[in-house]
């Protein structure tokens, strides 16, 4: 289950690829929605760890427009519920993640991303 919370943490690490290597772009993503227990404290704590623009852009690419382009100053329950759904309930089960810089493709199979590189691609 590659959820957007995890996608928000993965970057390309191919040899020489150190800039513009995040966020990876989903390709041919097949998505499942799975309900998760709502935990506002966890979300509040996690906000500072997020790359907001990467999250919003990725959610929009996957068809979810519930998050505002700027992180709001007032964190209310409605916002947290939307954030909860985007971060934790959208699961990418199949597809790939493509590096915006070098084009490397990281496959996702059965919900598990394969981030390994071949010997000659390791920096």
């Amino acid at each position: 289950m590659v959820r957007l919370i995890t996608h928000n943490i993965l970057a390309c690490h191919a040899k020489g690829c150190t800039q513009n290597n995040f966020p990876l772009q989903f390709k041919d993503a097949s998505i499942e929605l799975k309900e998760q227990e709502f935990n506002p404290d966890f979300l509040r704590n996690f906000l500072s760890r997020l790359e907001w623009k990467a999250l919003v852009d990725t959610a929009r690419e996957l068809g979810d427009t519930s998050l505002p382009l700027e992180m709001p100053e007032m964190i209310d329950d409605e916002f947290l519920k939307n954030l909860h759904h985007v971060l934790l309930e959208i699961h990418v089960e199949e597809g790939a993640m493509i590096c915006p810089n070098c084009g490397h493709s990281y496959p996702i199979s059965n919900g598990i991303p394969n981030m390994l590189l071949a010997e000659h691609e390791i920096g």
Binding site: T6, I9, L10, A11, C12, H13, Y106, I112, P113, N114, M115, L116, L117, I122
Partner: peptide, 9 residues
């Protein structure tokens, strides 16, 4: 995540 140590993280 299939990865070598923490490379992509």
């Amino acid at each position: 995540i299939i990865a070598n140590l923490v490379a992509p993280l």
